[in-house]
């Protein structure tokens, strides 16, 4: 199993770099995961990450992109509830990249 080191502590990740134990996640781990995805984190990025973690906490799944887009629009404002906005933040796919940075498993039905 691969590991990732943050502040001298080792974290297990799978072969694609997803965090194994989501309860170990913290912002520093998120920063490090973002670096591996070459994403510069801003408050707008964290907003989406926090939303994803809350969603996972409530429903035990990472939402599909369509669902994420709609939910973000409702929660954070219509101007953010579109895939253009989310793809600007996470160019390689909001589901794939944002879930990884949030320490969540790859979404079911992720394509």
């Amino acid at each position: 199993m691969a590991t990732m080191t943050v502040n001298g502590k080792d974290y297990e990740v799978d072969e694609e770099g997803y965090l194994i134990d989501l309860s170990q996640w913290n912002r520093e781990v998120g920063e490090e995961l973002a670096k591996s995805e070459k994403v510069d984190m801003t408050e707008s990025h964290w907003e989406v990450i926090d939303f994803l973690r809350e969603y996972y906490d409530e429903y035990q799944i990472a939402p599909a992109v369509r669902v994420l887009t709609k939910a973000i629009g409702k929660k954070l404002g219509k101007e953010k509830g579109n895939s253009k906005y989310l793809y600007e933040l996470f160019p390689y796919g909001p589901a794939k990249q944002a879930c990884k940075i949030a320490g969540l498993p790859k979404p079911t039905g992720c394509i």
Binding site: Y59, Q60, P63, A71
Partner: peptide, 14 residues
Amino acid sequence: MKNFSPTYSALGDY
């Protein structure tokens, strides 16, 4: 085991 029953509540979003 993983409790997947909360996920049924997400199906409305789908």
